[in-house]
Design a protein around this nucleic acid. Sequence first.
DNA 1: TGCTGCCATCTGTGATCACAGTTATCGTGA
DNA 2: TCACGATAACTGTGATCACAGATGGCAGCA
Lengths: 238, 238
Amino acid sequence: MNYETRIKQAFDLTDTGGLESGTLSHRVYAHLSQLLVSGKLAPNDKLSFRAVAESLGTSMMPVREAISRLVAEKALVVEPKKAAFVPVMSATGFRDITRVRIIIEGAASAMAASSATQSDLQDIARCEIAFRNLEGDPRAVRQAAVAANQAFHFAVYRAAHSGELLAIIERLWLRVGPVINLDLRENPERMKFGGAIRYHAALLDGIRQRDPQAARAALAADIQGAADFILSQGKLPE
Amino acid sequence: MNYETRIKQAFDLTDTGGLESGTLSHRVYAHLSQLLVSGKLAPNDKLSFRAVAESLGTSMMPVREAISRLVAEKALVVEPKKAAFVPVMSATGFRDITRVRIIIEGAASAMAASSATQSDLQDIARCEIAFRNLEGDPRAVRQAAVAANQAFHFAVYRAAHSGELLAIIERLWLRVGPVINLDLRENPERMKFGGAIRYHAALLDGIRQRDPQAARAALAADIQGAADFILSQGKLPE
DNA sequence: TGCTGCCATCTGTGATCACAGTTATCGTGA
DNA sequence: TCACGATAACTGTGATCACAGATGGCAGCA
């Protein structure tokens, strides 16, 4: 599937259920972000300004602004006079970002354990159940699992009640999204969510018990486990 | 001094000694970033696309892209159909970003204590000495102190050897830059660097002793001390 | 004198065009 | 059959124009 088809599909998808507010630039940005975090764009996929604009029915201008933002967040790369593309993350780069994620998302998890409200706890528990009870044919489950995993993690991070931390974490996910999904697409046999289910339960439990260190440890195990698996596949360059 | 004059001055400055490489967008971005971190732009200062473009001798296009990037990093805010401006940080927002800075820059300091090389140590020590020995008339010292403080902190953060963490910290400084400089401009009598000198020495010592917890504590005290002073002035809204 | 409403000005937003590099393709040569 | 080179298609970059919404100042009314 080439990128043009992929983008068209994604935009059709979001057009049906998506957001219609804000400027065109914002909408394009939201769309492209979704493509990245959900992994519909793989590393090295190229993004032509004109192709994106055409599939959206707009001019290049809003696309330029949206891509500028994503380049600023290092979610896309554009070299002079060459097509923008999703950066390929090296193994060492992935190890670095994993380490940083454990620090930052671990801190958010600990803060969530300290300051989650009852409403927060309900949200987190609901997401944990939804993730645990995923079923159906393997293809659909894998696709839904990415979304459910994201929903659970961000329910936790929101409970930390720090807008700054949340924004930083969103940028981190924008970067690791393509890598994680590349892993899922190329390793369909992976029993990934066996470990994740256990760690998610431990994380939820740590927050329920108001135990920051337990929450942090569970989160760290979750991220490190997934990262170790991806690294063990040896698909990342360098 | 209105923003137009201030920008013109800044661009004239960088035109003489600045960078001439990369696309126009990059150059505009670098210029505006410098204006922000050095505090030449104060909270609530407005930035007209056309005024910036005119003072640069370019069209609006490169300015649009540069501002898009800065908006993505939350260093600028632009509401639909209204002029871009430097966001005013509320007291609660400042408390939040201070908390996050202590977590993230604290982690970087601890990592620096673990993995700083001899060369890193020399850089840090050199910056610490330069900061401690600042002297001259108060106006010049205040201006140099901002730069020397930044140099010292980033010498530490570079010693953590994490590109990801460094990039996140740079974005954080882009945000707090205007607030800190506003403080300096409005409180010229402040004996700010008395505390900072002590904390910097403690931070350097913690790294030298390979003591991550000591380094983290010193960094936290430094940031928290400055933040407490700024908050005590009561100039931040809300 | 103080308030209100209108109008000129300024704002970002989006579209369109021109241009100079890059890339890919196809045809030609050995 | 394969390698090479020219050319055509495609790329982002930058400039310019039109437009609608926001702003601020000025005049007129109470």
